[in-house]
Design a protein around this nucleic acid. Structure first.
Lengths: 130, 130
DNA sequence: TTCCTTGCAAATCGTTTGCATAATG
DNA sequence: CATTATGCAAACGATTTGCAAGGAA
């Protein structure tokens, strides 16, 4: 299954790279549609999954039942706002990540490869409004 | 909306307390059905959600798209096996949990209330078989 | 020409919900 | 009696998939 170029896939990835709010498939669809009116939802889903499997984008399951996508594949944490539902990046070096993984690996009878963490709380924006 | 006793809810909770493998709603349904043949899937979903909202059980979203439930409401982490998909408890004191939350709170412009973490790797069982 | 990709629509699947009936307080 | 809970089936919403047609190598 050699990969072939597809304009749609490129547009999807390009769009995702312009956003740092981790849009859902549907949001990607609606936006990409403006520039590429014929694109179908199925194609968007197919390509988002493909890109995620290739490791070119990240799939986030933040707990609202809808998958979010992130073009930033560097290791970083996310904060989900319990007020507005926004998903924002958390600037942080990789120390806490490695520490947590190591701590847990210490006395686990299997092998811990990594972890996924979502922080919940009030985002900066909502906090100002209070 | 005062809560009224329901045999079904009790059976569901009782069953969940006997399991430490974090079953899905469907698994709960199939098992509870043996003891209570007339129960419906809808009732199982309704009660699992109710119990989770009351804080009497925990809802786990481990990334397979299906909700898992845990009668152990104490704060603890989980390991999802990338081989067999099992979800097991991780014995650990609360220090790493608090540390992570505090580290992140230090320079975040909102308020972090807590976090959800799932570890991924090979569980003890699968590791033995390699 | 090969076979990956698309658009479209139908199908899946976990979960929720409306409604008439049953059970609880 | 007032209200909550149930069983059933239909509805939902996000995602996947089958298929015939289109596009890349």
């Amino acid at each position: 299954m050699a990969l072939k170029y597809s304009r749609q896939r490129q547009v999807i990835k390009d769009f995702l790279m312009t956003r740092k709010d981790h849009p859902t498939a549907d949001v990607v669809y609606m936006n990409v549609k403006r520039e590429y009116p014929n694109i179908s939802l199925g194609t968007v889903y197919r390509n988002l999954s493909l890109l995620a499997n290739l490791g070119e984008i990240q799939r986030l399951q933040v707990g609202d039942g809808i998958d979010h996508f992130d073009a930033d594949t560097s290791r970083h944490y996310h904060v989900v706002c319990t007020k507005c539902g926004s998903v924002t990046d958390l600037a942080m070096d990789s120390t806490p990540y490695d520490e947590l993984t190591n701590t847990v690996n210490a006395d686990f009878e299997g092998i811990i490869e990594g972890h996924v963490t979502y922080f919940y709380g009030i985002c900066g924006n909502c906090h100002k409004k209070l």
